[in-house]
Amino acid sequence: MTTEWKLFADLAEHAGDRHVTVDASSGDTVEDALEQLLEGRPDLEDRVLEDGALRSQINVLRNGTNVLVEEEGLETELDDGDELALFPPVSGG
């Protein structure tokens, strides 16, 4: 099973692409998919993680739902066909 990440704003620049597909297995979590996304992308990892943990201002969505607020966080299990997204902080003005 594969899962696609959509990356927004400067996160796409750090990853080198706006869409990244990772391999995921049944029972894998959002955290597993995030680890695969960050593997081999040190610039993106530095932008998303701080001391090995997700930076508080980074938003992680699964099928449009913020997993950090409305689901089980990074421990949310993936289903086939899930779409994941990473958003940097959003500011208005």
Rank of each mutant, 00 (worst) to 15 (best):
M1P: 09
M1R: 11
M1Q: 10
M1T: 10
T3R: 11
K6R: 15
K6C: 00
L7S: 04
F8Q: 12
A9P: 03
A9D: 06
L11I: 07
A12Q: 12
A12E: 10
A12D: 09
E13W: 07
E13S: 07
H14G: 06
H14R: 14
A15F: 07
A15V: 04
G16I: 09
R18I: 05
R18G: 00
R18T: 07
H19K: 14
V20Y: 05
V20A: 03
T21L: 14
D23H: 07
S25A: 15
S26W: 07
G27T: 03
G27L: 04
T29I: 12
E31R: 12
E31P: 02
D32Y: 12
L34N: 11
L34F: 00
L34A: 12
L34Q: 13
E35W: 11
L37H: 14
L38K: 03
L38A: 08
E39G: 10
G40A: 06
G40N: 02
R41M: 09
R41A: 05
P42I: 09
D43P: 08
D43Y: 08
L44D: 02
L44S: 07
L44F: 09
E45C: 13
D46E: 15
R47E: 15
R47F: 08
R47V: 03
V48G: 09
L49Q: 05
L49T: 09
E50S: 15
D51E: 15
G52Y: 11
G52E: 07
R55H: 07
S56E: 14
Q57C: 10
N59D: 05
V60A: 13
V60I: 15
V60C: 15
V60L: 13
R62K: 15
R62P: 02
N66S: 14
V69K: 13
E70S: 15
E70L: 11
E71A: 13
E71G: 03
E71P: 02
E71N: 01
E71T: 07
E72C: 04
E72A: 08
E72V: 01
G73H: 05
L74P: 04
T76L: 08
D80Y: 02
G81V: 03
D82M: 10
E83R: 14
E83Q: 13
L84T: 01
L84K: 05
L84Y: 00
A85E: 02
L86H: 03
L86C: 03
F87E: 04
F87M: 00
P88A: 00
P88G: 01
P88C: 03
P88R: 01
P89E: 02
V90C: 04
S91Q: 03
S91G: 13
S91T: 06
S91L: 06
G92A: 11
G92C: 04
G93T: 01
G93H: 04
G93I: 01
